[in-house]
């Protein structure tokens, strides 16, 4: 349960960060969602051996995190937490792809290593970008923005309620688990077969709760649409930021900056 506990606390942390105020926080959520999307598409669309080309994106992300006041340690911890997944995906690249692609002095680097590295970098950038989005916007605002941008309303409502009741569900699961532990001795009572009924009754309780929540919503005139009164109007500044950032990202994707820079430097030296 310790892992669940810490993940749970971190959700609070994410919410807490979203409650701060900074240049990035003040942008319209929709603008941030769109920029994040552009960022993701650009990063994912790189060639499988690309590394240098993605570095400007890492710079961009660092800049956003810095402006938004998101502690680097927080993001790094999250990345390390989920990095094994990416590692697992690329683990066999060096084995299968041994075609030499790069020469560093006497060291020949096989394509597999490059693609693994590229994969990890891509992973850090995409996860980092989404974290940055949520930590500067807040989960609920992201949902609302997605809905305004055309995501079906049902999904937005689902996500909102998921975020709200995740806490209640975790709390309920924790209480049940504690009750089980308190009556388990010498490892008896903690087997998988007691987990089944426990999860089953958690599910039943959840269904009951869902029914009560639905009732409570109906009592206040819920008809399938969640309305909010957040006045959200895109300002000129928002649009400018969107155009600038979006444009910059596309240019960074289209033009290999590090390569140009390298050529420029070697050109100057020569």
């Amino acid at each position: 349960m310790a892992a669940v506990d810490s993940a749970f606390l971190d959700l609070h942390r994410l919410d807490h960060l979203a409650g701060r105020d900074s240049v990035v926080h003040r942008l319209d959520p929709r603008v941030k969602v769109l920029i994040t999307l552009t960022f993701l598409i650009c990063v994912v669309s790189f060639d499988k051996y690309a590394i240098a080309g993605m570095l400007p994106f890492a710079f961009f992300l660092t800049l956003v995190l810095g402006l938004g006041g998101i502690p680097a340690g927080f993001v790094l911890k999250k990345l390390i937490l989920v990095a094994p997944l990416a590692l697992l995906v690329g683990l066999f690249n060096p084995v299968y792809d041994q075609q030499p692609l790069m020469q560093l002095g006497t060291l020949t680097i096989a394509g597999g290593w490059l693609s693994l590295l590229s994969l990890l970098l891509r992973f850090c950038l995409t996860v980092g970008a989404v974290l940055a989005l949520i930590a500067t916007t807040g989960f609920n605002a992201v949902c609302m923005a997605l809905e305004q941008l055309g995501m079906p309303r049902v999904f937005a409502v689902q996500l909102l309620l998921l975020h709200r009741y995740l806490f209640v569900l975790v709390e309920e699961g924790r209480r049940m688990d504690r009750a089980r532990r308190l009556r388990s001795f010498q490892g008896r009572g903690l087997e998988m077969r007691t987990l089944g009924p426990l999860l089953g009754s958690l599910l039943l309780r959840t269904l009951d709760r869902a029914q009560r929540i639905h009732l409570a919503m109906r009592c206040r005139g819920f008809d399938g649409t969640i309305r909010t009164c957040r006045p959200s109007r895109l300002t000129g500044r928002d649009l400018l930021v969107l155009a600038l950032c979006g444009g910059a990202l596309l240019v960074l994707r289209a033009v290999d900056g590090p390569l140009l820079l390298g050529r420029l430097v070697t050109g100057l030296i020569a």
């Binding site: 209640v168 009560r212 009732l215 409570a216």
Partner: peptide, 13 residues
Amino acid sequence: MIFQDPDDQLFMP
């Protein structure tokens, strides 16, 4: 109607 468990009634962010 005020429900027994306020968690059932407070569902918005």
